[in-house]
Amino acid sequence: MSAVTTAPAPVNAERTGRRVEEVLDRLAASGDPAVTTAAEELVRSLMDFYGAGLARVLHLLSTAPGDPAARLLGDELVASLLVLHDLHPEDRDTRIARALDSVHEHALDVVDFDEETGTLTLRARESGGGCGCGSGADARQAAEAALTCFAPEVTVVELKAAPTLLQIGTKAR
């Protein structure tokens, strides 16, 4: 499963803050303003990302009814943070299924996942008996976007079209 059962290493917020400041000071001392600006932007971006994640956790825990764990695991931002730190309690296949379930406008089935290359092969299901000419690019892009949050180990998405059904009828004479 995942590393949820192991206790996280203790983190001292004050010490970590000092370490970040020291690294930024060393970069500023290098004399390259572009490096300093990039480092400060990186720190701001990470702070924004984690701040948004923590705010979302608090919101999900305090407002919506139902199972709090399900609400957290179903949220793209929170799920991505849990996966990033190997804390997500669901296995890869479950997370892939969750991601594909979130792509409501496209019915997609998993055909295969190649662990070596990170390639996920999907098949589009026909919805409503159409001609098989639905937009595969849209389905692939929607799947890629959802998988980025829930299953980042998927690096390539291949989409196979659903088999086209042929109409067989009698020839009018």
Results as ranks from 00 to 15, higher is better:
T6E: 09
L108I: 04
C131S: 06
V103R: 08
M47K: 15
A28N: 06
E22I: 05
M1N: 13
L46Q: 12
G74N: 08
T94C: 03
Q141W: 10
P8E: 06
T63F: 01
L166D: 13
R98G: 03
H104M: 12
E105I: 03
T5N: 04
D91G: 07
S62N: 07
A137M: 03
E14H: 14
D67A: 01
T16H: 09
G74Q: 14
D67I: 00
L87E: 09
F49Q: 15
V103Y: 06
V35N: 05
C133Q: 09
A97W: 01
E21K: 04
L159Y: 05
P33N: 08
S45H: 13
D109E: 05
V43I: 12
A9D: 13
V157D: 01
A124C: 03
K171F: 15
H59G: 06
A143L: 12
G136Y: 02
R92C: 04
E14M: 09
P33R: 12
H88K: 03
S127W: 07
R26G: 07
A145F: 03
F150W: 14
G31Q: 07
A107D: 12
A146W: 01
D109I: 03
T5V: 04
D48Q: 07
T5E: 00
L46P: 03
L46Y: 04
L87G: 08
G128W: 04
E153A: 07
V83W: 09
L120S: 10
A162M: 09
L73K: 00
T94P: 02
A3V: 05
G129L: 14
V4Q: 15
A38M: 10
D86L: 15
G169Q: 14
G66H: 08
E21Q: 06
V156N: 08
